[in-house]
Amino acid sequence: MADVTTEALGALSNRLKEVEGYLHADDLRSDVEALERQSALPGFWDDAESASKTMADITRMKEDLASIERARALLGDAEAAFELGSETEDADLLGEADSCVAKLEASLAELELSSWFTGEFDHGDAIVNITPGQGGLEAQDWCAMLLHMYLRYCERRGWKVTVNDAPTAEIIGIDRATFTVSGKNAYGMLRAEQGVHRLVRISPTDEKKRRQTTFAGVEVLPVLPDDVEVDVDPKDLRVDVYHATGHGGQGVNTTDSAVRITHLPTGIVVTCQNERSQLQNKEIAMGILRSRLYELELQKREAALDELRGPKQDIGFGSQIRSYVLYPYQMVKDLRTGVETGNVEAVLEDGDLDQFVIGYHRWMVNADRSAPVTG
């Protein structure tokens, strides 16, 4: 017997209409037509940077429109299969209706996400930093586990990842990690991971096998477009070069290719060693530094609430956003939204994070809608 009902199909139809409203589908079509006319004008590519941005906007809007059309087609297929299957009591048709509904629900979840991302950089790429917190050597191992989890998550999402810096720690794990994620809504999605992550498990380094609580901090920054101005005085920079270690292949260790840039006025330090060329590493490190300085300027302007990374917190007890418990029971729980799962392996090993990421953004949207209107 199929799980699909007339009421469920009606609810999905209403949900699709709401999503189309959130995304302003009719306006999107008009915008695409206008931008395509603009792109056909002589001289459009004279400003290559502006032209590339316009083409990226067209691609993104077309993807949303195509997703809406696919959702409509799935809804139509589900309704037809359910109606005919109910009349003929055909189990195969009812099963097809089930399959279409499952695909439709997943498609609607993605469309809803797109409608929630209204920030200036939400549709762009992201820079993610992972830093060990309380927990000693175990915190470095926890950083390595989180890096693996995020790399798997990005793979599941079809995003491109470049590990900029992830030096192997002396005994266990990694000292830190910085990586860049390129893909649709990468920054908007990964904003959900900003904060302190707590791990509870039996210590792998303790001979007495005692329970250990460990912390790591995750920072998520937008990759700034070239047209965003951030003034960096070369006199304020100290650039050090050294042998690269860890990610990047054996060849990176043959020359001083790794780069460390210190911004003297703020004390911000950025390192990059993924590329074989010192020049490439310096260029990437400068891009990360620009993002961090931009964020710092926002903090000065909005001391009460930093829109990019939230209030700054110690990476330790009382400040975590999510707990990963491996002992005495198994559970991953987001402390902001209440979303939880007992399948810890799927999260840590396979990067099954959508339930937490989507749950966070749904929670934020609901919080914004329920907030009292002032002024």
Rank of each mutant, 00 (worst) to 15 (best):
T255H: 10
R260D: 07
S291Q: 13
M286H: 00
R309T: 12
R290S: 07
Q280S: 09
A258Y: 04
D314H: 06
D256C: 08
T255N: 11
E295G: 10
R292W: 05
T262Q: 07
G310K: 14
G267F: 00
F317M: 14
Y294R: 07
S277M: 04
F317E: 15
F317T: 09
L305E: 06
S277W: 06
P311C: 05
A258C: 07
N281S: 02
K300R: 15
I315G: 11
Q278L: 08
P311T: 13
G316R: 06
T262V: 10
T271Q: 12
L264P: 01
A304P: 05
Y294S: 11
R276P: 00
L293A: 10
R301V: 13
G267R: 01
E283H: 02
P311G: 06
N281Y: 03
A304K: 15
Q273E: 01
R276C: 00
K312G: 09
H263V: 03
D314L: 06
I288C: 09
L305M: 09
A285G: 06
A258K: 01
S291I: 03
R276E: 02
V269L: 02
E283N: 05
Y294V: 11
E283I: 09
A304N: 13
V270A: 00
P311W: 06
A304V: 09
L308V: 10
G287D: 04
A303L: 15
P311R: 12
L308N: 13
F317S: 11
D306I: 09
N274E: 08
A258Q: 04
G316A: 10
G287S: 06
K282N: 02
T266N: 01
S257K: 03
K282L: 06
G287T: 04
L298R: 10
L279E: 14
L308Y: 15
E295I: 12
V269W: 01
L305T: 11
M286F: 04
G316Q: 03
E295C: 12
E295Y: 09
S291A: 15
E283T: 11
L289S: 08
S277E: 05
Q313T: 12
Q299G: 13
Y294N: 10
D256S: 11
H263I: 04
P265A: 08
C272T: 00
I284S: 00
S277K: 07
A304F: 14
L264F: 02
S277H: 05
R309C: 10
E275Q: 10
T266R: 01
M286S: 02
G310T: 12
Q280P: 01
K282V: 03
R301L: 15
T266G: 00
L293Y: 13
L298S: 11
D314R: 07
R276M: 02
L298M: 15
I315W: 13
Y294P: 11
I261F: 03
E297Q: 15
L293V: 11
R292V: 11
C272P: 00
Q299S: 14
S277V: 08
T262N: 07
M286Y: 00
L289A: 09
G310Q: 08
I261E: 03
R292T: 10
L264Y: 02
Q278T: 04
K282C: 05
Y294I: 07
R292F: 12
Q280I: 01
T271E: 12
G310I: 08
E302N: 13
D314E: 15
M286N: 01
K312D: 14
A258T: 03
C272N: 00
T271Y: 01
S291H: 11
